[in-house]
Write a protein that binds this DNA or RNA. Sequence first.
DNA 1: TACAATTTTCATATCTTCCTAAAAGGGCTA
DNA 2: TAGCCCTTTTAGGAAGATATGAAAATTGTA
Lengths: 185, 185
Amino acid sequence: MKAQKIDLAQRLQHVQDEFVELWNNMGSLWGISPTMARIHGLLYITGAALSMDDIMEKLGISRGNVSMNLSKLVEWGLVRRVHKRGDRKDYYESLSDVWEMFTLVANQRKRREIDPILTTLRRCKEELSPEALGAQAEAEAAQEHFRRVNELLKFLSMVESLAQRFFESHRGLREAVELLAQEAD
Amino acid sequence: MKAQKIDLAQRLQHVQDEFVELWNNMGSLWGISPTMARIHGLLYITGAALSMDDIMEKLGISRGNVSMNLSKLVEWGLVRRVHKRGDRKDYYESLSDVWEMFTLVANQRKRREIDPILTTLRRCKEELSPEALGAQAEAEAAQEHFRRVNELLKFLSMVESLAQRFFESHRGLREAVELLAQEAD
DNA sequence: TACAATTTTCATATCTTCCTAAAAGGGCTA
DNA sequence: TAGCCCTTTTAGGAAGATATGAAAATTGTA
């Protein structure tokens, strides 16, 4: 029986390592740094509230690094601080709902990356508009530029409005996915 | 009239610069390197077939760099080589359809990032299955790990099957967007 | 308030990624 | 096949991103 327990612990450990490594790679997809992703992966897979020391030890990274990345994770909303009575340490635990996590990340990225792009694109369009160019707007080159900026703007505006609708909560996301899945039958 | 033409050229130049800079930032969102993105941005906004020398000059980057990034762009399918009769230089031109470009990028990322993740996740699930763990599968920790891996797997499988359906061509993407937009009314 | 336990900050060090310049490669044309 | 023109590859270096560790700040307790 003892041997079995040790065995189990090892197996879990192994799966955890594999999972953390996986999350590490997934960081680039989510637009977060690898270490931040690893910490989150560890918290997600274990499902436990861990202290900084736990994390330092399990991932072999320094205290400062853990501290900085944890505070980013908390800021993103993927992880929250929890306290244990009679213990002065802070503990951290991951959200457990995959949909919710995904939605949070998607929203962050939208706000931080898509929105500024839209602003710039609108300005470009402005600068190429007939009002700004006057008679020169007739020029072939100007028209081509205008057309391309506009195409892109149309596309991204659409993406943005859908995101608005479906990504503002994880319920919205579920709804969207169900809708699409249904159609796929 | 002359002054106007010069003026127009300057304005277009300015918009191009702004656009290239924008694309540069967008690189991270698409998962391509900033320079690769800038080159593509330039080709997209000008709508012209440019030579390596043109690109080197307009973006101020070295020949080797342009060469490497162009070949990646061609590999991704975002840019294609074109030849001009009586000219030994290669020229490069971007796709013009925004939907098509987006679909290409999405597919690349799926293949290169999501698919490997799914493979790993399935292996993790395997290792945590009752078959692999036997009686130990009853342990609370094992069950929690299993549940979490499984949640994620379900989520990503769904994403993957939707992507299969809707991202395999840009027509599919349009279809999906229309469906969602409709529902949003 | 003083002390001890934690966490955060920040200057420094390390690592990775990207870029360049130069050399090698490939293919026309004469 | 020699010479030219253009492209690709590569080794090394520069810039940027990340991690570290120790000092400073914060927090809770007596």
